[in-house]
Amino acid sequence: MSKDHKIGAGLRHQHFPHLIEKPQTNANWFEVISENFMNTEGYPLEVLLSMREDYPISLHGVSLNIAGTSEVDKNYLKKLKNLIDKVSPFNVSDHLCWTGLEKNNLHNLLPFPYSEESLNHIVSRIQFVQDYLGRPLILENLSAYLGVRDCKYSEAEFINELAKRSGSKILLDINNIYVNAKNQNFDPYHYFEVINPEYISEIHLAGFTDMGEFLFDTHSCPVFPEVWKLYEYFLTIKNDIPTLIEWDENIPEFDVLDSEVKKAVKLWENSCD
């Protein structure tokens, strides 16, 4: 297996005891949830810094609330910047969503209207954050269980426009595209035709749960064949983007996660032939 791929794995605390022993891994980089390390100076941060000695790390947040309408939380940004200084990540990302209002955080990645008002609002917030952090922000397309009616833009159009106007980058979660395509009844391949690959700085792959009435983005199982297919297709468009396997619930032994990494590496290798 080629060593110079850009496939990584989500680092979760369940794997700390295994990874702290510094085993060989297929994963060439790791991503962590920023908030899990912003309010600790204890053991979790020690493990992360030890991992950083051997691997590139990316920081992935869930609480930036970039589409929120309460004031940007400066204290949060300060803590994030502090963590960035400690970890020197190659990517710093969050989600294109809102999470709550002041004094009432829903702790979830929430959908909002893809309107002109939202676009202007988010562009100015992104610029503020980018100025503060001194680096481009990378925003992930989210999975949703409802859409907003009468939107001016489709999701892919909105994301393109946002990147164009703000200088932010895109984290393209292919599982989320698939989940939304099924839930909202559109063609996932069409998404790739709209989205501008030049803006994409990272790819996510993960598993969902079929709830019968809808697909639920649970990150609780291996990547589905349909999503691998989409990834394979995407590799024909661009194949040099860091790609991550995420697994957040029912977290298995590290080897299981690492074998998902191996599958992605194989597909990437095929795309190079």
Binding site: P113, A144, Y145, L146, G147, V148, R149, N180, K182, N183, Q184, M211, G212, E213, F214, L215
Partner: peptide, 10 residues
């Protein structure tokens, strides 16, 4: 409710 379109068969 008036502003949303439910996903899937929800």
């Amino acid at each position: 409710l008036d502003y949303i379109a439910p996903g899937g068969k929800l």
